[in-house]
Nucleic acid binder design. Structure first.
Lengths: 169, 169
DNA sequence: CAGTATCCTGTCCGATACTG
DNA sequence: CAGTATCGGACAGGATACTG
């Protein structure tokens, strides 16, 4: 779970990711972790999740390598949950989700915004192509295409619908 | 559902968005829609979803204003589902999710990548601040802060943990 | 083709109680 | 404080059958 998926099991980046992330609780717990919370009762208090469910979710998060469980005191031993690099790498997903909510769902007077920690300036998160800087927003200028390892049935599904890339390289 | 949320019900951009998006099926159907599919049996064939579940999801999507249901022929009348602007605005979320899967989950030889439709060049999606162009990736340089409409209990939760913005403006 | 209706199973998830 | 164990309801969601 914690690492990469076997090539045979990899079909679609989206559905596989969705399956791996598992449930929405995952994202909400991670959000708390990004806010600096690390402890069981903090998560429980903030999220209003039952202890049994929280236990299950935390176990899954640790098994998936998104959180690390480590003792922060001995006698009695107590554990906290801290983000791994892998966990931190999910931040753009949370940001994109929250940005959409702010733009499309929030009342005019937003209650929660993303700001730069140093300047306090409000941030407007957008998804762009790192190489060209062009926004990926809602244009049809970007499509999902079959890569080198695409299987036959995937190619048949996508054939003619999206530009195929060179198979060799 | 289709429009904004009442101010009293707005607590956290993430949890509210998650609630509104509803289920993972929503994202997967939307992904198909972005690929240009519009019809019931296309969705069903691609996703392997049961017809009853698909009906329910499509209804919710239409009610939420993410898809538009419209007849594409008469006698007998047949319907198709096309993306609305609101639906298209969710694209960055899908892209962020898929990008994470590609980066962290996929086998080395990725099977599906995002490419520019004109050049065929592969795209590397990142989330940045539209104003400064700085990446929001995994840095701690950005935090969620209380906005003008924050309620008292939200402020108490976030007080001291994240920089608060001016209450007045 | 584009659904609707019904049945059925799994499991998400809160409530409650208990533990070192 | 940081969980574990158990119970039970609600519902997600597939299978199947039926319709204009």
């Amino acid at each position: 779970m914690a690492s990469r998926i076997r090539a045979e099991d990899w079909e679609c980046p989206l559905s596989t990711t969705v399956e791996q992330v598992g449930e929405w609780w995952t994202l909400l717990i991670l959000h708390d972790a990004f806010d600096g919370y690390t402890r069981f009762d903090q998560f429980q208090g903030n999220l209003g999740i039952s202890s049994s469910m929280l236990t299950a979710r935390l176990k899954a998060l640790v098994a998936d390598g998104l959180l690390e469980r480590r003792p922060y005191q001995t006698n009695p031993v107590r554990y906290e949950y801290v983000l791994t690099d892998r966990g931190r790498s999910l931040r753009p997903v949370l940001v994109a989700l929250a940005a959409w909510g702010n733009a499309r769902l929030a009342p005019e007077e937003r209650s929660m915004v993303l700001v730069a920690a140093d300047t306090g300036e409000e941030v407007e998160p957008v998804v762009v192509d790192a190489r060209t800087g062009r926004r990926l927003d809602d244009s049809d200028a970007y499509v999902f295409a079959a890569g080198p390892a695409a299987s036959a049935d995937m190619l048949s599904r996508y054939a003619g619908r999206v530009p195929l890339r060179a198979q060799g390289a």
